[in-house]
Design a protein around this nucleic acid. Sequence first.
DNA 1: TCCATTACTTATCATTTGATAACTAAATAA
DNA 2: TTATTTAGTTATCAAATGATAAGTAATGGA
Lengths: 145, 145
Amino acid sequence: MDKKELFNQFVAFTTAVHQVTHELTQNVKIDNITPVQYKILEYIKVSQPVTPTEISDCQHMSLPNTSRELRKLQERKLIKKINDTEDRRKHYVCLTEDGEKVMEKAFACIEERFQQLIQHASKKDLDDIHHALNILDQKVFNPKS
Amino acid sequence: MDKKELFNQFVAFTTAVHQVTHELTQNVKIDNITPVQYKILEYIKVSQPVTPTEISDCQHMSLPNTSRELRKLQERKLIKKINDTEDRRKHYVCLTEDGEKVMEKAFACIEERFQQLIQHASKKDLDDIHHALNILDQKVFNPKS
DNA sequence: TCCATTACTTATCATTTGATAACTAAATAA
DNA sequence: TTATTTAGTTATCAAATGATAAGTAATGGA
């Protein structure tokens, strides 16, 4: 396996991944939520509690802009802020009950589409997919070393 | 392998893919090119010749907005339009020589970062990665019925 | 021929996103 | 104590993106 060839395969693959994730998530729109706000909610959902700084880092946006979007989400009662008792400059962001509901619904919708995507996969196919995901995670996408 | 569990793994995986592609492509900025314009150039580079309608479909943007961005790219002499001889409403979009240079440089930079990412992979690792990409492509990301 | 459709363009406006300066308050180091 | 750094906010402006209406020109079908 030539490394150059592998790169080409990698590019095609990531393009396909982006394409499919777009299809799975499109129209999973919570009313009046912008794409950036949705991304933030998604991140909070899987990683909560998180600080604004963490959101800022992971979503590649400036802290002022993060703060603005969080304020909007808080105004819509989708998230809440909890003060850190140790360091009072910090605070943690969590989903409210409403926010949880909304995100669970969104994820359920995405999962349904995902299950359709693999509906014809055999038991062995599923194992193969699981294994392939593990390999790529370990060797390419989660370079923990 | 539980399908529900596989979904969770899938979500974590796609997040990691997005993260890594972001790292590979960040700062591969051609001067004064917006993210959307870069995406269009990338698509043209790998798929040329393409029509504005195809770009519109693949990049999920309206034809008027596609037309606007193509005009800007043409003004900067990065792309050119070629009329279809059969159907004179259509035309094909290609990179100019300048555009080719610029995109080759961008891809070279991305490839270099990719090679760094897998620099410690053994021969067997590379084969495993290649195989895993194939599996996922066939069974998940390129659902050619 | 006439009409509907397709491919694309131009123009305009609203919204979203990005960037930056200036600020508060708390923590930490000198 | 004082100075510096860190975490976050507010405000403001510019730029990028999205949505839509209205237009041209070519095609294709009735």
